[in-house]
Amino acid sequence: MTAARTYRAALSIPSQTERLNDVREFVAGLARTHGFSEDDINKITIAVDEACTNIIKHGYNYSPDEQIDVEIIRTGAAFEIVIADRGKQFDPNAIQTPDMKDYFQHYRRGGLGVFLMKKIMDKVEFDLHRDRNVLRMIKTLP
């Protein structure tokens, strides 16, 4: 018996918001190649955008010369996105899920990125590896 073949692709960008579009194009292209619907492609792209935006904002505090590594690993039906950085630790699972009714009643702002990531992806995990923060998000192919 042969194990499921693994496909990998990687992209690194400097920690600049103007490079978010490069990440989105990279992820969208691969999600399309691997057979996701246009709706899922858009959503997966947003989840990755939100993760990278959080790293740029909170992890690196807008310092433009740091690095974000994005890797896509497809094994069987699992489409995994691994995002690594060396900034301030930021665990999306430590962020409380907002009550949207309260959110709108009080005209709150921000904090929706993590909520979107969790809502869109099937799994969102965070690990600290030595001095690297590693975020893993998995979306299962239909």
Binding site: I46, D49, T53, Y107, R109, G113, F115
Partner: peptide, 15 residues
Amino acid sequence: YISSAGLGVFMAFIE
């Protein structure tokens, strides 16, 4: 395309 950063702008001004 819109991400949560974009949605936040609407929240900032609606009130």
